[in-house]
């Protein structure tokens, strides 16, 4: 049994169907990426898993529990950490308060995990009392990841972590994701920057028009003629 199993997923928003048939699995400890053109439904896969999009049919199974259709405030208890692409921090809350909300579902804020976040992202440790909205884009992205890591999730969902970052920060962000995965956290990532994402992941999925197109090891997809021609710009 995989850690996360998505089968025959049909999902969207209200009357609008975005995903017509998505299948994917994530094994314990893996680093999996989803790439594909704009409008392919990559972010909707994430939103369907965490309960922000509507699931019309199919199943989403996390460690044997079907979480399809579960509202987001309950999904968080199942061990999924989610970092949305944008609006992923509370701008008028301080850095420290954002991390506290990251651990909202726990009885107490786990101090050692908070310290681990500050160790991982030292720039946040220098600005604990500042409003999160005053952080730079890269720092906000780190804070958003830190919030998701406060629950020590079974799987971390990252929706385009490199979006909106200055080019020289993109590599740094991918390095950080590598290190999070190396430390044992399972990662499922959606990325616009397909080549870099495939280079770094264990396995990748290419989706288009709400359907699976290709699935293989990252390196294999990267060198596949068909994938290169259709999705990676040659």
């Amino acid at each position: 049994m995989s850690l996360l199993d998505v089968e025959d997923l049909e999902a969207g928003y209200g009357d609008i169907k975005v995903l017509s048939e998505i299948n994917l699995r994530v094994e314990d400890g893996e680093y999996v990426t989803i790439v594909g053109p704009n409008g392919a439904g990559k972010s909707t896969v994430m939103k369907a898993i965490v309960g922000l999009a509507d699931c019309f049919s199919g199943t989403i199974t996390l460690r044997g529990t079907n979480i399809a259709g579960m509202p987001p405030e309950e999904v968080v208890y199942e061990g999924i950490g989610y970092v949305p692409q944008s609006n992923n921090i509370f701008p008028t809350l301080s850095v420290e308060e954002n991390l506290r909300i990251g651990a909202y579902v726990l009885e107490t804020v786990p101090e050692e995990r908070k310290q681990a976040v500050y160790d991982r992202f030292p720039v946040l440790a220098d600005r604990t009392d500042e409003e999160a909205g005053s952080l730079s884009g890269g720092q906000q992205q780190m804070l958003a990841m830190g919030c998701a890591l406060m629950l020590d999730p079974d799987v971390l969902l990252l929706d385009e972590p490199s979006a909106g970052l200055a080019p020289d920060l993109v590599d740094d962000m991918f390095d950080r994701v590598d290190r999070i995965n190396d430390a044992g956290t399972t990662v499922l990532m959606v990325e616009q920057n397909a080549k870099e994402a495939l280079r770094r992941c264990d396995r990748g999925y290419v989706i288009a028009n709400g359907e699976n197109r290709f699935e293989d090891d990252g390196e294999v997809l990267l060198n596949d003629e068909e994938v290169r021609r259709q999705f990676l710009g040659g």
Partner: peptide
Amino acid sequence: DDENLARVRG
């Protein structure tokens, strides 16, 4: 600040 993100955080 953000109701959807609040729900995501539980």
